[in-house]
């Protein structure tokens, strides 16, 4: 069990108002307005390049919005930037491992929080146990397999006992067993009262893991709804198409060889197949 508990006031809820993010002369995130509440699980879905990763990085504070505002409304937010940073953790699309052992990767993250040596050891031990990495404790982190690195990234995030955990496609490139393991870990972290905000390309996973779904398309939040409602009856027609497995190629100005369903491009595609 995690021996270390979260103390102090919460920073949630998180609120975004009219957030725009521009880079390279393009508006990549547009008019984003939404909010997140304590201990819910939100899954962000949408096609490649929709802005899901940017959205997570904005929420986590790694990017500053070009306009609009991102606010933590909880009492804890009064305690300053460092406090807010240490109440969150993020697992990136590609795990970033320091050139050190598995144990040292977690220990380093804990030391940045100013946690004492003995406590760091206990926490590290406990999260490695929970993520099934104890045997690998002294291995260099970067020689672990992709799935193991992802579990280590989760273990490190878990060790932070975050109030809010951001996960960017935590199971991309993992086999079914590893995916299952990662989903269990995320569920366990959520079980300790952590708010989960993650992206996924796997609609099955979205159904399993989400309380709420956010559907992003070309930098816009087109739909934000409880999971059952969203999958039963998506309000937005692009979301509808996406859920029904009609990839959004017909709206993205590119043909797709795999989905010759749409009548207009059908003839064109048939020639290639």
């Amino acid at each position: 069990m995690i021996t270390h508990k979260r103390h102090g006031p919460e920073i949630l809820p998180l609120e975004l108002i009219d957030v725009d993010y521009k880079a390279g002369g393009q508006r990549l995130i547009k008019d984003m307005t939404c909010s997140f509440n304590t201990s819910r699980r939100s899954v962000i879905i949408g096609p490649n390049g929709a802005g899901k990763s940017l959205f997570l990085r904005l929420c986590h504070g790694l990017l500053k919005p070009s306009s609009g505002s991102i606010n933590w409304l909880g009492e804890g937010a009064q305690q300053g930037r460092d406090y807010i940073t240490h109440r969150q953790a993020m697992v990136f699309q590609r795990p970033v491992m320091l050139r050190r052992s598995v144990v040292a990767n977690i220990d380093y993250a804990l030391s940045l929080k100013g946690i004492s040596k003995q406590t760091r050891k206990d926490i590290t031990e406990s999260v490695l146990q929970r993520t099934g990495l104890r045997r690998k404790a002294d291995h260099p982190a970067r020689v672990l397999s992709g799935g193991e690195q992802q579990r280590l990234a989760l273990a490190r995030a878990w060790a932070m006992t975050p109030e809010v955990l951001f996960l960017d496609e935590p199971t991309a490139n993992l086999d079914p067993a590893a995916t299952h393991a990662v989903e269990e870990i995320i569920t366990a972290i959520h079980g300790t009262g952590t708010c989960i905000i993650m992206t996924s390309h796997d609609l099955g996973q979205a159904k399993r893991m989400a309380d709420d779904i956010l559907f992003l398309h070309r930098g816009r939040l087109l739909e934000h709804a409880p999971v059952a409602e969203f999958f039963k009856n998506p309000q937005n027609d692009l979301a509808q198409a996406f859920v029904q497995g009609e990839l959004l190629w017909w709206n993205r100005g590119q043909g797709s060889r795999n989905r010759p369903h749409k009548p207009k491009q059908n003839q064109h595609n048939n020639k290639q197949e």
Partner: peptide, 24 residues
């Protein structure tokens, strides 16, 4: 370039990152 997001996420800005990067 490789570590920045992760280290900032953990609460380490450039000053705190300096010894870390020299070691790594």
């Amino acid at each position: 370039n490789e570590y920045e997001d992760q280290l900032r996420s953990l609460g380490a800005g450039p000053a705190r990152a300096l010894p870390t990067l020299l070691w790594d």
